[in-house]
């Protein structure tokens, strides 16, 4: 197996549940029990109401492409072999937006508003990235 050279996330105590869920191929985000906000990325308090009662919830993994770019040149040397690849912002059905890649279709087929669903890529034994594919 070749070494994975692309940037990897370094989970913190705050974000660990998200990455642990990803490893189980589940998409979990935080939910504020006080104001009802759905929160991503993970935080220590709710950035909307500043409440501290946050719970982790499993979400649908469904969303739409909010915007995207097709990288025709690598945005980092380690992505050179992936060109062209799609970097996207997906708006989850629950509200928050998430940075991701759109996979499972040709880059030219991606469009804003396209329905997508989460798919999980085990890139190292420790880390699973959350990507999206056409729903």
């Amino acid at each position: 197996m070749t070494e994975y050279k692309k940037p990897l996330p370094r989970p913190t105590a705050t974000s660990l549940p998200f990455w642990q869920a990803a490893k189980r191929h589940e998409l979990q985000i935080q939910h504020c029990t006080k104001c009802g906000a759905h929160i991503f990325y993970p935080r220590d308090i709710c950035p909307e109401c500043l409440g501290s009662e946050l719970e982790w919830i499993k979400v649908s993994g469904k969303g739409v492409v909010y915007s995207y770019t097709i990288a025709r040149a690598p945005t980092h040397p380690a992505f050179a072999e992936d060109v062209p690849y799609v970097i996207a912002i997906v708006e989850l059905a629950e509200g928050p937006r998430i940075t991701t890649n759109i996979v499972g279709c040709k880059p030219e087929e991606v469009h804003i508003g396209m329905g997508v669903e989460a798919t999980f890529e085990d890139v190292t034994p420790e880390i699973t990235l959350v990507k999206f594919r056409p729903a």
Binding site: K6, P7, L8, P9, R10, P11, T12, S15, Y41, T69, A71, P74, T75, H76, F79, D82, Y85, I87, I98, T99, T100, N101, V123, I127, L129, K131
Partner: peptide, 13 residues
């Protein structure tokens, strides 16, 4: 942690 693993790095993308 949340952008770079997907190639959203620096300003261009």
């Amino acid at each position: 942690e949340f952008d770079a693993p997907y190639g959203l790095i620096a300003a261009n993308p």
